[in-house]
Amino acid sequence: MTKYGIKVLPKKEVLDSQGRAVQSVLEKAGFSLDDCHIGKYFEVKTDKGEVEIKKMAEYVLFNPLIEEITIESL
C-alpha cells in the first residue's frame, strides 16, 4: 500500500478569489508576502499506483478547467 498526496490549487492564470482576500488581510496586518493561494489536499492509500491516483483525481477531485494538481507519493 502506498500513500499519495494530491495537492489541488487554482491554475496560475485563473483568479484565486480566496487567496486574494486572505493575502489582503495578511498584508493589512503587516505581514509581507508576494502571493497567496488556497487549495485542497487529499491523502489516498492504494496499491494500484500513481496512474490510478491520476484517474481518481481526473474523475472528481479537481476541475481541469480551473485547477491543477500535483501528485506525490509519501
Partner: peptide
C-alpha cells in the same frame, strides 16, 4: 477554443 474560465468573486 476554450479561453481561460472567468472566475466570479461575489465578495469583491
Amino acid at each position: 477554443k476554450r479561453p481561460t474560465i472567468q472566475i466570479g468573486d461575489p465578495f469583491y
